[in-house]
Structure formats: C-alpha cells, structure tokens
Design a protein around this nucleic acid. Structure first.
Lengths: 233, 233
DNA sequence: CAAATAGTGTCTTTGAGACACTATCGT
DNA sequence: ACGATAGTGTCTCAAAGACACTATTTG
C-alpha cells in the first residue's frame, strides 16, 4: 500500500473534490454492566471544550489502517482495560452538527461485561465511579455531551429487545452462575418480573448444570450452571 | 460555519495527526422491489476500475455538509429517481481493504419500493434491466464488486427477519391492495407458503377494508384494503 | 420450627398451524 | 355446471402465563 495517496488523488480528481472533503469517523462505546441490580453504563467526564465537565461515551477515532472492529477493541482496551468481551455494532450517527467542532460520523457499538470483570480489569483506576445507571441518564438527571443521550437510549432499546429472544443476558455473568442470578439479569434488562418456573422452562435448553452449589445465607443453596454449547471464554 | 477548518486544525493538533488521516464515507443503497413474484435488487454495472464491468450497489459519497439521511435521499433520487420511499440503516462496513483504491467506510441503507413506483419514477431510462433477483446474486450467479454480495446477504436477512414481526411488507405495495397480494409479498419475503386464514387473522388489525374490489379473471373479485393508521404517503 | 430462597408440577390462556368449508366471479 | 381464486370457521397443538406446591438451608 505504498502508492495509496497517489491512487486516491487520481481517483478523486474525477469528482468535484469539494464535495468529498472527508468527515472524521469515530467509534462511540456503550459499555454496559449490571451493578447493584441496575443496568449501568461507563461514561467519562470531558476535560475540554465543548461540553467540558459533562459526561460522554468513551470513544476513539478510527485509524486509517484499522477496521471498525479493531478500533472497537482498541477503545475497549484503552478506556476500560477490557479484552475478549462481547460487543456488537449498534447504529451510525451522522447528523452534520452533532459535534460543533467538525464533521464527525460516529459508529456506535455496545459492549456487555460482567461487573466483576470490569472491576478486576480496571486494576488501579477506580472505574466504578465512572458507572452511571442508565435509568438516571434517560431520566435526564445527568448532563450528556453531544447526542450521547440519544445514542444511549438507542442502545438501551437494543438490549431490551434482544433480551426478549436471545441469550444476551449471559454476557453479564461469569462462566458459572445460578439460575436465580440469570433470571435477575433478564428481569433487569426487560424491566419486569418473571415467573420462576416459566423462566426455567425456557432457559433449560441453553444451560447445563454442574454439581456445584453456592450458598447465600439461611436458605437452600443454588446450583451452578454453565451456558450450553456456545462456549463463553 | 466559517471558521470550521481553523477550529478543526486546532483540535487535531492536540493529537497524533497521522493517526487521524480520514477515511472516505459512502452510502451504499440496497433498493429492493418485488417483480415477477421474486425479490429483486437494483444494481449498476461499473464502468471503471476496479471491478470494471461487474455489478455493484448504487452509492454516493457523503458530503461534508449533508447528514447520512440526506445523502441517502440524494442517492435514491440520483440513482433511481425515487423520492419519499421507505428506507432504514442496515450496517456500517469498515474493513481496511474492502476497497482496493483507498480507505472507504460504507454505511448501507435498504430502501423498499413498489415495482410500479420504481418503473414510473424512472421515466425514460430503462431501470428494469438493472434489476436482479436476490436469489441469483446470493447463489453466486453474478459477479459482484467489493464486498457487495455480503452486504446484500445482510440486507436479505434483515428483510426476512422483519417480515416475521413487522409491517415491512406493506412497503412493496401501492396504497390500496388486496389481501392475496399482501400475503404473496410476505410469502416471497419469508420464502415459504402461508395459510390464508391464519395470515388474515394476524394481519387484520393492521388493515382497513374499502368498498372497492378488483377483478382478475374468472373468479371471485378481491376486496381492496388500506394500511391501518400508520399512513403510507 | 420459622424465615428465606431454591426449585417443581400443573392448570389456564393465547396464538400459531392445519384443514375443511363456503362465496363469487367468467365462461 | 366448472374451474379458479377469495374468503371464513374451527379443531389441534405448542408455548407463554399464572399460581400453588415442595425442598433445603441457617439460626
């Protein structure tokens, strides 16, 4: 890829070049986790204008020699020391004035991570103080930079929708978990209570029981399960 | 927005600028229609390198002063003389080498249009010869430029999935339609036959009957319907 | 044994699926 | 009357919803 700039120039010369002034492309990350029985998202406080002091999604510019997925992985690592977690593309935001400085097109991705993993990965830095409940953000209780509140609302909807028909809930748990834990995850994502017996009937084909139990006080211990087939690393 | 370039320069100076050489951003359009009881897509034959002579999705560059949606509308108008039709964002494709000339990130949108409208909008140009069955493309019977076959496969899946639970099928029909017509659309999208009685029970809340009928030969005429509430323009 | 949570059995309700039937047109 | 397509009634079956019950732990 030596002559790339030359090739590009030649290519663009056949167009009205003013029309193809290029926008910047960034990745915005919606890193969701579940803490204290609530859906939380990782935000950073902006230390410069515009929107200085307000909360924003962690983001990175997409490098000219890296794919979108590579940029996402780099962002997850740089902003939250996370590797090997689940993520998926959400939506691409391209309104002209969404960033007052310059034209920025943002590809949003959501990542789901168990709270314990988020804590242990972060190491020194106190990442916990950068977690905010999605509920409070959508209720307008926090000042959000750019169009980030809308992006979070979009991500919240995606999570809720996928909780209806997919195994997305597993992403918030460690490899081994109990069915009451899993049910609670789904209840938080869906925003409603579920019937124990029905939940278990539905989830049964996707879990395999172990011989281990966990005890949480003065009651019957709960059996530990693993996710079936589709192995979680 | 006079001082934009100045502002931008100042902003970028605080970064490693080589890292933020900008990619180009384009829109790729998946214009679907139903013709001869098959799902078709509009493609153009490339008249220059690379992939000269091969088929490609119609696309436009995203102008620096237009939103993604504005670029989509401009593309629909320029490439197929279409206005006021349904479209939605599909996915953003950003592999580094998806275009051999230069780094291009493409935001794909799918648009759905009744075949009759596609024909009448096109006017002079014979747009019909640019329609290809999605089936033949996915079977590998046509040479596709870039990663466009993958993009089409993704769009085909989206259409099929949305046909399962949404009113997307209406977008392929004129304002007034018969239930057998609507059922046929859904059968084509889903790739399977449906039971008449069951289909009508399910669709009933979303249609309102008119007092008009259409007659198609030696059999009972079919009643014309309108889509309920959610008005189609 | 009481309190608390884990886990199961089963009746009800809902909607999808399957199929048989009737209705209305042109010839 | 017939062939063809439009349109309806109803039985079956599977899954979701609701609820009552049993099981196992600690103190």
């Amino acid at each position: 890829m030596k002559n790339k700039n030359e090739k590009e120039k030649q290519f663009l010369d056949s167009y009205d070049s003013s029309k193809f002034e290029k926008p910047s492309v960034t990745i915005d990350l919606l890193i969701f986790t579940i803490k204290d029985n609530q859906l939380h998202i990782l935000l950073v406080e902006r230390d410069q204008m515009p929107f200085q002091g307000q909360l924003a999604l962690p983001g990175v510019f997409v490098g000219i020699e890296e794919s979108l997925e590579e940029a996402v992985k780099r962002g997850l690592k740089q902003k939250a020391s996370l590797t090997d977690i689940y993520f998926e593309q959400l939506y691409t935001w391209g309104d002209v004035d969404r960033d007052p400085r310059m034209r920025i097109i943002s590809v949003s991705y959501m990542a789901l991570v168990p709270f314990s993993q988020l804590l242990s990965s972060a190491g020194e830095q106190n990442i916990e103080q950068n977690l905010y409940t999605v509920e409070s953000i959508l209720a307008g209780q926090e000042e959000l930079a750019f169009d980030h509140r809308n992006i979070i609302a979009y991500g919240r909807e995606r999570v809720k929708n996928k909780a209806e028909y997919s195994l997305i809930g597993f992403q918030f748990l460690e490899k081994k978990f109990t069915l009451p834990q899993l049910q609670l995850i789904y209840e938080i994502l869906l925003g409603k209570q579920l019937y124990k017996a029905n939940f278990r009937k539905k989830i049964k084909p996707y879990v395999v029981e172990t011989e281990e139990f966990v005890s949480t006080g003065a009651n019957r211990p709960s059996k530990l399960y693993l996710q079936a087939s589709t192995n979680k690393k």
